[in-house]
Design a protein around this nucleic acid. Structure first.
Length: 711
RNA sequence: GCGCCCUUAGCUCAGUUGGUAGAGCAACCCAUUUACACUGGGAAGGUCAGGAGUUCAAGUCUCUUAGGGCGCACCA
């Protein structure tokens, strides 16, 4: 027996060299593995923010996927786990802007091209960091195939899709109302917006013969349409299109009566004025009746000249002043001081979103969503846990067009030209169009970039070299899409839609969604609360295997997990337990080597074998159904409480007092069982099992990572 | 407002098709030159949130009440 077993298991000394051994073996790359079953299994690693560092959530992602991959590899599948890095457009740009702020610079003063180069350099430097962190978790992904969302071939695919969408009339450039962040100076899609409950005053204002209500008096300067429900008896006397004069904030204006059934008769007075430029509901009403739209607030959140004396004032400063003026004119009917309502905020900085009308590129989602819904309904795409199927279906059924333009430099440039006269946009992948075909105006290059999710939604086929790539033919569709439940719309649903649209085939068969990793008290980790657990601290202290087990056991998909250090410590003990089990077994068997075809077992051992096989079968079925949490626990229990506590104790007597046949039988049983325990535990705790495997007295053995699954 | 999920031992959570309630941690008693103290043995701990129903049988299915969480939509 190797002397190393005389000391407790030392994860720290072992892990780096084991990972290096795997990497050098080439077995992470399916091209180097024998295809024993003639079946493939593939997973895409959700592209990690190249600029970020590993957090507990990544730890979970990497562990779950690595377990799936290692298990299938052991079962003889040709397994591809394709790693990726994400330029994470807006996220990274925000991080970089903070850095600029600290240096006393601003992105608005830097030439876009220069800024892009700077962020690229910054990101590529940091990407080395995240890669080595992913490795430290034990991820057995194929690094030779790593893809970055800004790689030329990915960009090329994204451009082809953009063009195809345009040709199929699923893309349009439209002057539409979008969610605009006055701080970040970019528009968003509906998903980047967070609702926040706020208590604010609610004003009832006299508007000619009507009383209207608003929480946003600063938008009211241009309001010249007063809207009511066509069936509202109270306002029967007023006809659609009636005009009247009234005294308003800055003097006399002419208003027009509009009848529209979007009005809720029960709310307030049942009458409202509209600000189509700054409110989506108002925008829709204006579109329906072809009403004029006027911008009141600029991109920085300041009032425009239409506000007269208030021009140039910010919203927060102007609001009380406007009310003061209205009050002086006797136009304030009443004020509800504590009005509770939801306002839309930027998910990143919390700034109140200021809707603006902008020319942006939109994707028509309804036709894409319908195809996705079919595949979900037919069961071709399965969700784990299954409640996500309903959540996805609901979102897809109510989908709105997707704004894919972002006014930031860090991203894939939109390959299009805009007319400086008529503002139409044309897709121009070759960058050769000069004159507008419609009005003859000059074409200028669109300076916007794509929403990050527009490129990551194409990840499954873009990374595999669609349409001609060998990997695309071999590994698409992938088997499991494993990611966090909170990006189900951002990413998962859009991958399904674009995958189906571009390739005609689903991008993955099973969607496996894990929950959030919370702190030990079940609270969300956040830098401001100071409760962020760095996974690398834990792997350093308890070993990566212990960390992995702690994340997996008892963690059901979709449910958030309270990460307790106690639990991880318990699995550190488990790694050591296996170590000592090995020490005992190796000492007990002496010179005995594992005989592959041994069958002359004693009755006692045959009974134990039957038990063991039952458990291994059970574990295999759990793994096939992706019940990782159960498989891990069952193996843990068998190794510790059956094999160590009972079988090893019993062996002490048999090896001492048994007949020659009984001793031989027991020695073989111990070796076979230990080897099966090591193989089946390998997906969960790869490092310690591989390290032990080196010393197993087995002839012609392979590396554990490519051994044969014991069932 | 609409929809979904959760409520099981002190804590964190399992419990796949209905068939005598489980794990880890914590706490309690005992053992101590043992393969392993990163240990072993033992005992304790639950009217499965409350109520009603279906069933020979319900933690599991149905309805309902309460509390917690999440998603979506929001009325100016």
């Amino acid at each position: 027996m190797n002397d190393k077993f005389l000391k407790p298991y030392n994860a720290k000394e072992t892990e780096a060299s084991i990972y290096k051994m795997w990497e050098e073996s080439g077995f992470f790359n399916p091209d180097n593995c024998e295809n024993k079953r003639g079946e493939v299994f593939s997973i895409l690693m959700p592209p990690t923010n190249a600029n970020g560092s590993l957090h507990a959530g990544h730890g979970l992602v990497m562990t779950i996927q690595d377990i799936m991959i290692r298990y299938k590899r052991l079962r003889g599948y040709k397994t591809l786990w394709l790693p990726g890095l994400d330029h994470a457009g807006f996220e990274t740009q925000v991080v970089y802007e903070k850095k600029l702020e600290k240096e006393g610079r601003s992105r608005f003063e830097i030439e876009p091209k220069v800024l892009y180069e700077e962020i690229m350099k910054f990101t590529l430097e940091n990407s080395q960091n995240i890669k080595s962190q992913v490795k430290s978790i034990g991820a057995s992904c194929d690094w030779s195939r790593i893809k970055f969302t800004l790689d030329d071939d990915i960009v090329k695919t994204v451009y082809q899709t953009f063009k195809k969408l345009s040709e199929d009339d699923l893309l349009y450039r439209g002057k539409r109302i979008v969610s605009w962040c006055p701080k970040h100076q970019t528009s968003f899609s509906d998903l980047e917006i967070k609702d926040e409950e706020k208590i604010e005053p609610f004003y009832y204002l006299k508007y000619g013969p009507f009383v209207i209500s608003t929480s946003r008096p600063e938008t009211k300067f241009g309001d010249k349409y007063v809207v009511m429900h066509p069936e509202d008896k109270r306002y029967e006397a007023y006809k659609h299109g009636d005009k009247f004069e009234l005294e308003w904030i800055n003097g006399k204006i002419t208003a027009t009566v509009i009848k529209d059934s979007a009005i809720d008769m029960a709310f307030g007075t049942g009458v409202m004025t509209i600000t189509p430029w700054h409110d989506p509901v108002d925008f829709d009403i204006a579109e329906r009746h072809k009403l004029e739209k006027e911008q009141i607030i600029d991109e920085r959140g300041k009032l425009l000249p239409v506000a007269g004396e208030f021009a140039g004032t910010s919203i927060s400063k102007a609001r009380p002043l406007i009310i003061e003026k209205l009050r002086a004119k006797g136009l304030v009917e009443k004020v509800d001081e504590a009005y509770k309502h939801n306002i839309k905020t930027c998910y990143k900085c919390g700034t109140t979103i200021e809707p603006q009308i902008k020319s942006q590129w939109f994707v028509r989602m309804k036709p894409l969503a319908e195809k996705a819904l079919e595949k979900i309904k037919s069961g071709e795409i399965k969700y784990i846990p299954d409640q996500y199927e309903k959540i996805s279906t609901h979102w897809l059924n109510n989908i709105i067009d997707w704004n894919i333009s972002r006014q930031i430099v860090w991203g894939i440039p939109i390959p299009a030209k805009l007319c400086n006269k008529c503002d139409i946009g044309i897709v121009d992948l070759e960058d050769k169009e000069i004159k507008c075909s419609k009005c003859g105006g000059d074409l200028i290059k669109d300076i916007d970039t794509f929403d990050t999710w527009f490129s990551s939604s194409q990840w499954p086929y873009a990374t595999m070299g669609y349409p001609d790539g060998k990997d695309f033919k071999d590994y698409y569709p992938t088997d499991v899409m494993e990611t966090s439940g909170d990006i189900i719309f951002f990413w998962v649903s859009r991958m399904i839609m674009l995958g189906l649209y571009v390739t005609g085939n689903i991008p993955f068969k099973t969607v496996y969604l894990h929950g959030l990793v919370l702190d030990a008290k079940g609270k969300k980790m956040s830098k401001s609360k100071g409760n962020v657990i760095n996974p690398l601290d834990l792997t350093d202290k308890y070993g990566t295997d212990a960390f992995r087990m702690g994340l997996i056991v008892g963690n059901t998909p979709g449910t958030s997990l309270a990460l307790s250090e106690d639990k991880i410590r318990a699995y550190k003990n488990f790694a050591n337990k296996l170590w000592n089990i090995t020490r005992f077994v190796l000492t007990s068997v002496g010179e005995e080597r594992l005989e592959k075809d041994f069958s002359n077992y004693s009755d006692t051992d045959n009974k134990l074998i039957a038990e063991r096989e039952l458990i291994l079968k059970d574990v295999t079925s759990d793994l096939e159904s992706l019940r990782l949490y159960l498989a891990a626990e069952k193996l843990y229990h068998y190794a510790w409480h059956s094999f160590a506590d009972f079988i090893l104790e019993e062996s002490k007597i048999i090896l001492q007092k048994g007949s020659i046949e009984e001793v031989k039988s027991r020695k073989q049983f111990l070796l076979h069982t230990l080897s099966k325990i090591l193989i089946s535990l390998h997906p969960f705790i790869p490092f310690v099992t591989e390290e032990i495997w080196k010393d197993m007295p087995i002839d012609d053995k392979k590396m554990l990572i490519i051994e044969d699954w014991p069932v």
